[in-house]
């Protein structure tokens, strides 16, 4: 069914939050297989567990039980610092509210992941960051601060930042949720371009236009895939 190799494999993933004396289960036995160069949309009503599952895939959160294999690595067995390194190198994350650091310029925000990588040469860092800004067509805003940029521009900076270490996987949690339809379309075009460039992309969305562009759609309801 797919000629590519499996890159993400979730088996029987459960997530239970302990709320004092009650337990809240938000994911139920999730099994999911995603292949290299896939472009997947996750849709579902609010509170269905989309963000929770994406955070687990992003190695930002750990499931209560179940197994997660990423690039043949058993994620659960890794330490937090190992997960930081995995996020730094192989996963780019994009959020609805952009999550840029406001006291740093666009260029500085974009090159920040390099601060935690092996690339220590300042020139190389700047060059890479400029290349990424070029990919999102924002070279003229390199020295601007987040509060001097429009929402769409901020999201493009965030996308540039997610690309800086050339990760295999891009995860986006409602990347167009805060943007108008025209700007949303620009972001969608960008994601499409990244997919064509060979990235594996998973995007949570309420936006039908995005969902139309993807290869496959995962429907979540009450913590279950339907």
């Amino acid at each position: 069914m797919n000629e590519h190799k499996t890159i993400i494999e979730l088996s029987n993933i459960n997530k239970i939050y302990n709320l004092g004396n009650t337990k809240l289960q938000v994911l139920f036995d999730i099994c999911l297989q995603i292949y290299e160069k896939d472009f997947i949309a996750i849709v579902g009503p609010s509170g269905s567990g989309k963000t929770t599952i994406l955070n687990i895939i992003a190695c930002l959160d750990r499931p209560t039980s179940g197994q997660y294999i990423l690039n043949d690595i058993d994620v659960n067995s890794k330490s937090n610092d190992d997960l930081s390194e995995i996020r730094n190198k192989s996963i780019g994350v994009i959020f609805q509210n952009f999550n840029l650091i406001s006291r740093h310029s666009a260029l500085e925000n974009v090159q920040m992941p390099l601060l935690y990588s092996d690339i220590t040469d300042k020139k190389t860092r700047t060059r890479k960051a400029r290349e990424c800004l070029e990919m999102v067509d924002l070279t003229d805003r390199a020295s601007h601060y987040p509060n001097e940029l429009s929402g769409g521009q901020q999201q493009r900076v965030a996308i540039a930042r997610s690309l800086i270490n050339d990760p295999d996987i891009i995860l986006a949690d409602e990347p167009t949720g805060n943007l108008d339809s025209q700007t949303s379309r620009d972001i969608i075009t960008l994601l499409k371009k990244l997919h064509e460039a060979g990235k594996t992309i998973i995007v949570i969305t309420h936006n039908d236009e995005i969902a139309k562009e993807t290869m496959d759609t995962i429907n979540l309801k009450d913590g279950k895939i339907v």
Partner: peptide, 16 residues
């Protein structure tokens, strides 16, 4: 707090 969260998300280890 938020900045720290962002930094950890993009790859900062605890020692960083």
């Amino acid at each position: 707090t938020k900045e720290i969260g962002i930094r950890i998300t993009i790859g900062a280890k605890s020692r960083d």
